[in-house]
Design a protein around this nucleic acid. Structure first.
Length: 292
DNA sequence: GGCGATGTTTCCCC
DNA sequence: AGGGGAAACATCGC
């Protein structure tokens, strides 16, 4: 999926397109789309609701409705939200569900791999931007999301304390766990670690103060740049207007195995960390002594 | 056709 | 706790 910058791009676009519109109907032909609720129940609760706001939390798109509920959309790997005006064509052949508005416009949810979900929740269930007060045992993602990395709370001090709490974890998989810091995905984790000159396998607790400062800066810099470029579009990924982002041309290491590092000339390597394809420059991101 | 890869999350095992 | 592996799916490239 779409990581934080892509979801932010989509939420901003949708804000201008659907806020104020009233839902007249919801249909879906993939029963797991609203899992664990049946589609018919979600449709019934959604009908007649007005969309008051559209925002992003982590990698989730949140539609705040009039009343106490919110529609939470998880795009996962290939989910797209495609807006269309009244009378415009349907979208692509992977549309799994559609929200119809009273004025004839609609919002389609297209998802090739069917991992995405649309669920209706009470607004109070969504974790606040600093994360839930205490760690929830077995809660759905929207309730357990951690710190927003672009919020004021994401300071060097907060990050240092977070890394200390999770001292034994490898830093890259830790960045990918949204319950700690929300919204960072594989690509932006890779790019931020390169910028901060930190090897993906370093233990979180082993980062020195200067490295922690660099990591905090790098995460924010990379995410903000992603937003400024309209997110990245790999393969056929598009935003809510059906357009491609431009961030993919800015990647320094992602997808660049074998190419020289733009900073030091070292040869960029592809490895697998925590089951995910990972790219780094072995020359300016020094490997830790050894990990088990 | 087979194999491996894909931007996410969750679950099970050790 | 945290790492490994697989699964939820479908498509694409070699």
């Amino acid at each position: 999926m779409p990581e934080l910058p892509e979801v932010e791009t989509i939420a901003r676009q949708l804000r201008g397109l659907v806020v104020g519109r009233t839902v007249s109907g919801f249909r879906a032909d993939w029963h797991k789309l609203t899992d664990p609720e049946p589609v018919a129940l979600v449709a019934a609760r959604l009908g007649g609701r007005r969309i008051d706001a559209v925002r992003r939390r982590g990698k989730l798109v949140v539609f705040d409705l009039d009343g106490d509920e919110a529609l939470v959309v998880s795009l996962r790997m290939t989910g797209k939200l495609l807006f269309r005006e009244a009378g415009a064509p349907d979208g692509d052949r992977f549309v799994r569900g559609t929200i119809d508005f009273a004025d004839g416009s609609a919002l389609a949810f297209s998802d090739t791999r069917k991992f995405g979900r649309m669920i209706l929740v009470d607004r109070t269930e969504i974790a606040p931007e600093r994360g839930p007060e205490r760690r929830l045992a077995k809660a759905p993602l929207h309730a357990s999301l951690g710190m927003e990395p672009l919020s004021r709370g994401f300071t060097v001090r907060w990050l240092a304390s977070f890394l200390a709490r999770r001292a034994r974890a490898a830093v890259k998989p830790l960045l990918l766990d949204g319950r700690g810091i929300a919204g960072i995905g594989n690509i932006y984790a890779i790019e931020a670690l390169w910028r901060a000159r930190i090897h993906p396998l370093r233990a979180a607790g082993s980062l020195r103060a200067d490295e922690t400062i660099r990591l905090q800066e790098a995460l924010r810099w990379v995410l903000r740049k992603g937003i400024r470029f309209g997110g990245s579009s790999l393969s056929d990924y598009v935003d809510a207007r059906g357009e491609r982002g431009r961030m993919q041309r800015e990647f320094e290491v992602y997808g660049r195995a074998g190419e020289p590092c733009s900073r030091c000339g070292g040869e960029i390597r592809r490895t697998v960390v925590g089951g995910r394809g990972t790219f780094h420059c072995p020359r300016c991101q020094r490997a830790p002594r050894r990990r088990s």
